Simulated scan of single mutants.
Amino acid sequence: MKLFEKNAAELSAMLQNKECSAVELTKDVLDRIDAKESAVGAYVTRCEDCLEQAEAVDNARAAGEELHPLAGIPIGIKDNISTKGIRTTCSSKMLENYVPPFDATVMQPVRKAGMVITGKMNMDEFAMGSSTETSYFHTTHNPHNLDCVPGGSSGGSAAAVAAGEAILTLGSDTGGSIRQPASLCGVVGLKPTYGSVSRYGLVAFASSLDQIGPFGKSVKDVALLQSLIQGHDNMDATSAYRNYANLYENLNGSVQGLRIGVPKEYFGEGIDAEVKDAV
């Protein structure tokens, strides 16, 4: 199995056990991007310093520094999340050449953890769409079937994980823009509870609904990344004060007695019979 086919939790263990290096992992993902990107179209901007980022992680590990479990893991960032020094376009011609002078709050823990930022992911322009066909730059295709859409607006983020062009990605969700493309691309995506992840530096669609959230190949992956980016932020007036548990460390808790409610209105006219039966 190639490194890009493994999930973040597996790769984290391999990196910590020195079964592979961050440079080796990053090279494998970059080779995968070179092989698949022309067909999938998940990226708007690719970072040119990926190997330098990975080498810094390897050097820190060799020096005996204590590193975050996600150190050296390649991550793609949806193109409506501000990244200092990296072009942020919202997939719009209006912002085609915009390079932010500041980072969104979520980028601070990502950078501090030593994750390797591979680039910015394609999306529906200004997050207005559900198919990633409205990007000014190009359409993103579903890597499982290139004739199909990957969903949206975080279609590039979902497609990249599904295609092995990134190990983890960040997206944003207002009314389904993480959950829907995760479903269509067969990966795991989470819209976190509102207020648990800072929205500072996210180009807003509907501020009362927007949330930044993770994509990964597994629930473990999503729990790792969500645990990294969650927390209170003074820069976001809607950021919630609460004790944030480490989701990854609590994955084995019992769900006995928990109930899931689904509104009866979801089963109204127009629902596909196969979906209704599955639910």
Rank of each mutant, 00 (worst) to 15 (best):
I75S: 04
A35V: 01
K191S: 07
Y98K: 03
F205S: 11
M115G: 05
F215A: 04
M14G: 00
E125H: 02
K6Y: 09
L251S: 05
G270Q: 11
A8Y: 06
D173H: 13
L51I: 15
C90W: 00
M121F: 01
E125M: 04
A63T: 00
S183L: 10
V99E: 15
G195N: 14
H141W: 04
A245Q: 12
C47G: 01
G64D: 01
E269V: 05
P192Q: 13
Y200R: 13
M1D: 09
Q180A: 09
C90K: 01
A113W: 02
K93R: 15
L170F: 11
C148M: 13
L168I: 13
A113I: 03
Q230C: 14
D221G: 11
K36A: 04
S135H: 00
M121R: 05
C148S: 13
Q108T: 14
E48K: 07
D173M: 12
N7H: 14
I260Q: 06
G201R: 11
K6A: 07
S196A: 11
A127V: 04
A237F: 11
E65P: 02
G156F: 07
D236Q: 08
Y241A: 07
E165C: 13
D58M: 10
Q226F: 14
A273T: 15
V279N: 00
N252T: 09
A159N: 00
E5C: 07
N7W: 11
I81P: 00
S21F: 09
L228Q: 11
P214W: 08
E19T: 05
D173F: 10
N234T: 08
K112V: 03
R242G: 06
A204W: 03
G189T: 14
S208F: 14
A35T: 07
F4C: 08
C50K: 03
R179K: 13
A113Q: 03
E125G: 01
R179E: 10
S135L: 03
T89W: 05
R199T: 12
P181A: 07
P143G: 08
A35Q: 08
G231V: 03
M115D: 07
Q53F: 13
S157A: 15
A204T: 11
I178P: 09
D31W: 04
G189A: 08
S12Q: 06
G216L: 04
A63K: 13
A240E: 14
A60C: 07
V279Y: 08
R199N: 12
K276G: 09
V149D: 12
I75T: 10
